[in-house]
Design a protein around this nucleic acid. Structure first.
Lengths: 216, 216, 216, 216
DNA sequence: GATGAATGAGTATTCATTCAT
DNA sequence: CATGAATGAATACTCATTCAT
């Protein structure tokens, strides 16, 4: 799977650079206009070439979009995994979750049109384009489930929260930022720290002496 | 306000009933397929008539969609306002927020295709269809801002949260449920109570004495 | 299968007339330009409407062409069968073949663009469009085989001819007329009588006392 | 006459060999897919090079196809002329026709994609590609007309046949074999002898004494 | 009121052709 | 000589929209 990781301008041959330019353009358009609203001519405009040139690199519009969507979720997972692996082994579960929040948000807000495209269109793409994507989504979900489980095992998740639902609410809060956030609303740093505080306390039980009051 | 509020069963003339049927159908399709993916023939199928009939009731596809979107957000606001007005005047700010969470979620998950359509497509609709909608969105936002401000004024919002960002995170968590929630993931009641717990603690400072009641 | 028999201008509703107009136009273009060379806009021009109107009556270009091809061979068979059925029961086999020659030629040369389309394109059409057609072709072939067999049984086919090959040569001579014949080359009547003489003697053994010299 | 006659194995330079490879490939594709269905990439595939390479040897697709078509009919004529010239000067007209039948059929069935291409597409090619071809076709036709005339002059053509029409029927029977013949239907030898018998008797008047030899 | 019939403006896709290398 | 890369012109097909009935 060449060009799986979109390296904005650093590929080898000219052809690979063009291919990447098209992918980047597609990610950009897709993240803004949505699946059904994404037209090849818009992508071509953005990539500064003519629409038929796209067919030199991709078999069809669907293939191109599929690759963008796959890259989006795949990158998200890779970077999250890397971020977690980089933590000291004894990092507390909730701190690992904070790292995950930061990784997710940074990707979504400042790094990647692919992530935004993937996040915003995941629910609108026809099933036959989701084969590879579904696997990555499941893998991404599995990482988060692991984080939640570890946290729960150490009593760091409120007993009155259903972990899968709580996880979905957390990711929802993060995903939705793609719909509204804009640099004018504050720096990414501010966004990250607010989200971290928000998530941490949404999940955490009352700090002290909580263990006994698990069921109200 | 003709047909502004879709009252599925209570219209007068046959014409009004047909108009409502079309609106309902449009809301349904729009909430599932998204703005660019919504075709008049799909709406017509759902409404059990032919596409040209739609033009007897709406000037254009855009007009129809605009009305659905407007109804969605407008309903959301009306019902939220009603729910808040029904609370005892001395209800604590955080309890008012809990009511708002419930109102928003119930609308989104079990009551209204319009709400879902409005929520999921708000970011994909061309600007010229958003004139009326923007006002309603602003009004809806204002209600939430009021709730947050009241809560903050009573020290019920953590100091390390920026209220507007926190509010957006809350609404994001709620809005995103439309993307993933499904009766199989648990009842609406479960969903509501989890969301309430989630939101309350995400916002609340470390409690000195936890007294708030979660059910009104 | 409505419109299977193209009745040039005699259908019931206006819609059926338009459908037939499109079929006729398609048959005409197809018989001249061939499968790959037939463009929907040419058909539309010929039918005096715009290309998208075709989709109101046919699912796709392929569907339309398939129907033309099917009608062509199907008509050919029906008319041949009718012509044979109209003969007195005791008609001699070679006379029945003469009737078949006339039926085939008249169809091809003066009656039907469909027949011409069918004949000239049978070998160039993608397999998946030939499902119905193949059956008709087989049926048409079966009629001719029957004629040949009857003639052979009565010793009216030369012993030094392989009947299937001879049949193919006969039909080849007839089919190819579509490639060159033109009213300027003589009337259809002349064409028919020449073809009949040609075929009769190509097949017939030396008239008298031939039975004993079957093998040279 | 550079590359006019495709001599598959005998060209001088590599360039000429490549040119011939392209022509052969084009003849092959053209004989199968037909004029409008022949794509340069298919030809390139068959010739084991890329489509743009073709432009080094031919000005355009049309030029290439024109040359294939011209070669097809030109070869047919040359070989027929050669075959006739090789006959003893006193060969009977009908025997000369038998030779012509064999020459035509062998070319069409076992020797030349060019002949097949030429025969099958003659009626589908736009007029402006037929300038050279028409001349060759006329010349080929003239040879046959000569054969027919000679036969008629010796009373070897039935009086109830119009010679030009009869000639067209003969060639039709032969040409059409390209549409259906396949080695599975019998050897070329069988095909040839059947066609000879078929043609001879289709044309011949009732014989007084049958003396002609069918094999030269 | 509602529909059948038709159309114009797009939109993905194909293909011959060009051109720099 | 030959190819990789790119494009313009076509072409099938979709869809919102119109209009006579």
């Amino acid at each position: 799977m060449p060009a799986k990781l979109p390296a904005p301008e650093s590929s080898d041959t000219k052809a690979q650079r063009t291919r990447t330019r098209i992918l980047n353009a597609a990610a950009q358009v897709l993240s803004v206009k949505g699946y059904a609203g994404t037209r090849l001519t818009d992508i071509a405009d953005q990539a500064e070439l003519r629409a038929p040139a796209i067919y030199y690199y991709f078999k069809s519009r669907e293939d191109l979009i599929e690759e963008v969507m796959f890259c989006g979720i795949s990158d998200l997972r890779t970077y999250l995994q890397d971020a977690l692996d980089a933590l000291p082994p004894d990092t507390a579960p909730m701190d690992r979750i904070m790292t995950a929040v930061e990784s997710h948000l940074r990707h979504e807000l400042e790094l990647s049109d692919y992530a935004r495209a993937s996040i915003r269109n995941s629910g609108q793409i026809p099933g036959h384009l989701k084969t590879r994507q579904k696997k990555e989504e499941a893998a991404y979900d599995r990482i988060w489930r692991g984080l939640m489980k570890d946290a729960a095992a150490e009593g760091q998740i409120r007993a009155d929260l259903n972990p899968p639902l709580a996880q979905a609410l957390v990711l929802g809060a993060l995903n939705w930022t793609a719909e509204w956030w804009h640099p004018r609303r504050g720096s990414v740093e501010t966004m990250v720290s607010n989200a971290q505080v928000f998530v941490k306390h949404s999940l955490s039980p009352v700090p002290k002496k909580q263990r006994t009051t698990r069921r109200r």
